[in-house]
Design a protein around this nucleic acid. Structure first.
Lengths: 122, 122
DNA sequence: CGCATATTCAACCACATGGTTGAATTACTT
DNA sequence: AAGTAATTCAACCATGTGGTTGAATATGCG
């Protein structure tokens, strides 16, 4: 897996720090889309959407295929993999604690369920 | 695992979009640190570092424990787990393709190695 | 209590961001 | 060739960002 340079990681996380751009990536997970198709769901100008697409492209998250005047955008998952790997280095901090939390929540649910049953019987 | 709201995800990815803040998180993976300790490795004012720490705190990535005038910061991995999970949804896009890429690179390396050997022998 | 330490705050600065509008560019259709 | 479609560009705007400096605040020490 290609490891990203620091500024490339800046760009990837920055690109992901906007809901519009994350939604565009979700859309692209369903296959290639034109610029206009990507822009369509958003209440903003085409120029604004085009700017977002440029940010994603600069971060290496999408690649565009130009067919005449139509630009088809495709997801490029490599940088997502790098970001995922970077975050994965912290997995030991959430694996254990979340297991503990989930167990506590399950126990709490069981206790509540038992109490509610008693309540129902009253 | 707690799923973050959209704006919380904005904050998490935004916080990660800066090399200074990512480095601070790496430091915190080694245990609690004071504000001054976190600031020390950076060529910037304490106030600037303090701002970064505030961004991480607002994103829920760190928690601070105030002991008198000393603020001890601790890593909070929950939001990292959420971001990791968000990225994981795209894993099918990099798993297959990266395997193909790695295999091609390995074959390329083998070929080059063989060619170099012949060159050496000349 | 005075001094020192740890840290944040406020104001400032230069630049970046995310939106708009109208124009420009590239390409397709009739 | 004219009109249309797809998209980007440039200039603008309001706001945010990331840094600085000096002051303010909270707390500890001798």
């Amino acid at each position: 897996m290609v490891e990203l340079l620091t500024y490339e990681m800046d760009q990837v996380f920055h690109a992901l720090g906007d809901a519009t751009r994350r939604q565009m990536l979700r859309e692209l997970a369903g296959g290639g889309r034109t610029v206009s198709q990507l822009a369509e769901p958003f209440a903003m100008s085409l120029a604004a959407a085009s700017k977002h697409i440029k940010v994603l492209e600069n971060a290496g998250l999408i690649r565009r295929e130009v067919l005449g005047r139509t630009h088809i955008c495709h997801l490029e998952a490599g940088p997502l993999a790098s970001a995922h790997e970077w975050l994965g280095a912290y997995s030991r901090f959430w694996t254990g604690r979340l297991e503990i939390l989930e167990r506590l929540l399950r126990e709490d649910d069981a206790r509540k369920s038992s109490t509610q049953k008693k309540g129902d019987e009253t």
